[in-house]
Nucleic acid binder design. Sequence first.
DNA 1: GAAATCTACGAAAACCCTTTCGAAAAGGTA
DNA 2: TACCTTTTCGAAAGGGTTTTCGTAGATTTC
Lengths: 340, 340
Amino acid sequence: MTDTTGARAATLGDVAARAGVSISTASKALNDRGDVSASTRAKVRAIAEELSFTPNAMARGLLAGRTGTVGLLTSDLEGRFMIPILMGAEDAFGAGRINVFLCDARGDAIREQHHLKELLSRRVDGIIVVGRQTDARPSLGQEIPVPVVYAYAPSDDPRDLSLTPDNYAGGRLAIEHLLSCGRRRIAHISGDPTYAAAQDRLAGARAALAEAGLELVGEPMFSEWTEHWGRDAAAMLLQQHPDIDAVFCGSDQIARGVLDSARDLGRTVPDDLAVIGYDNWEVLATNSRPELTSIDANLQQLGRQAALRVFDAIDGIDVGEGSHHLPVRLVIRGSTIARR
Amino acid sequence: MTDTTGARAATLGDVAARAGVSISTASKALNDRGDVSASTRAKVRAIAEELSFTPNAMARGLLAGRTGTVGLLTSDLEGRFMIPILMGAEDAFGAGRINVFLCDARGDAIREQHHLKELLSRRVDGIIVVGRQTDARPSLGQEIPVPVVYAYAPSDDPRDLSLTPDNYAGGRLAIEHLLSCGRRRIAHISGDPTYAAAQDRLAGARAALAEAGLELVGEPMFSEWTEHWGRDAAAMLLQQHPDIDAVFCGSDQIARGVLDSARDLGRTVPDDLAVIGYDNWEVLATNSRPELTSIDANLQQLGRQAALRVFDAIDGIDVGEGSHHLPVRLVIRGSTIARR
DNA sequence: GAAATCTACGAAAACCCTTTCGAAAAGGTA
DNA sequence: TACCTTTTCGAAAGGGTTTTCGTAGATTTC
């Protein structure tokens, strides 16, 4: 246990006293400001180094009126969508010498309010709200004295700025890819139909099919975002419509289940049946047989974007409002195109 | 975009002025301290509410010498081991009105130093260092003016306090469970042999076997922590030693691969072959056929513990030193015991 | 009615830093 | 020598809060 208790951190006053100069001179020496002789500057610097002086960010912030901190308010840390977003944001902020307060509300509105108050009392310069679904979530309100950006889950108030992945485009992209692979009889297995993500992806898929003069084979199948459901659904599907040549899955987990059932039923992927997933969850997508083609929502990029918007807002740049749908990306692997 | 720019947050002075009392009286009224008449207190409270006054935590911290913040220094946010630890810590801190600064060093020592300096300049009251492997990592040093606790990856300096899951006990537990299921011919497939986790689990497993007068069947197989390797290794293993009745896998991913190959080769799990994983990664463990028995490292608990230790250290309680190995837990599912 | 005791409030210090402005010292010019 | 410029430094304010201590007024006691 590192515990140098009692060893109070050195203050600027300590440095100044030790160097035999005034506090103001010491400050100027350390910050390259004002008129300080080279010798004095060097001396102060040396002493500061020796005492391992670190300016107190609070005292500094008190003066500047900015803290150089940002709050990251998530609904559900567990959710794997949070992590890349969080990484992207942390990354962007880190580059700008801003530190991140992490708060996990556990999906509880009361806890969220509580955390929000804490963040405000810490005088964060901005807030990013990360939701766990792409469904709209309640706005924190317009009364917040710092800029707020919503990531992944958009705010239900159009006056807020929200960044969310473009699930519609993702659905299109998936189908367009399958079509370009020569598939024509395409079915859709997805997760919980109450998720906006499920509906948006389906809508995109239908639009792309319609443009090609096609329709989904059978009704889209909804239930859970699990491998189990993927297996069960695929088994039913292949029995009812043995003539399908592709399945667009609402998630990689579902796709894994579909691959499993397809193998059980003697269908060869991708020759006989192409399978495309969604989310590009590497652990699942790159470890299946064959590896899984998937749609990647560029979440880390989304986190970066959110951070940059907050940056701009802090600098007084107007960053707009409304829901912005960020582009997604197709990652092609063996489940849709045979190797060589 | 919520942006009430210019709407400076209300200060205690504003409240006091509006209430027609002095700043000190206002402070006492809001903090239930000192002698304030009930009527004055009520009045101040009402005004504070009206102005939605939130005390400036910086100014408060400046005085108190404590910030009520803790730094969480991770090496690799992506790693899924971080997240539960982070959740546990955030949870414990949240209960104590402490906020968490999150810093991701991306596994880079220089970036870590950089973040450390930032945290110190923010005058965090304590630091938790979360590593991505259970291998010992370089200590941050003894010169840090606040308590430091290492979680998951222990520090290489025994004077530091480290909390790490007990992989040795995990290995024992896995084998003891297999033995109690009546298995006697047990093989081991694990990941990267340079990981302390791999070696510790193996050592625990061997110890448990030795106590039963048994040995591993064949040499333990090491390579990667992937499903692919699990499949390949299992195929080899079952060819070389068709008579094995159980496989202890170093990770759930490997176990998934083993299940896959076993099915391909016509082995029935668990009747014919028991499989046990490690990490209890729910997404993998509960979606396999059959579901996977696994060892859970209680990471969220570990995060909580780390937070509590930091709490204690902040309160001046000596929390000890050295590497502490936290208990792990067996989660039994269908891959080792047939349903009913 | 004077002295002692309470009660309620305010002034001011302290926390640590940055910044502005004024002053002193050093050097140069007429 | 008197005056001016340049350079270097320090005093002090300001930021928002908590806390200590002093004081004025109200109330009680003999």
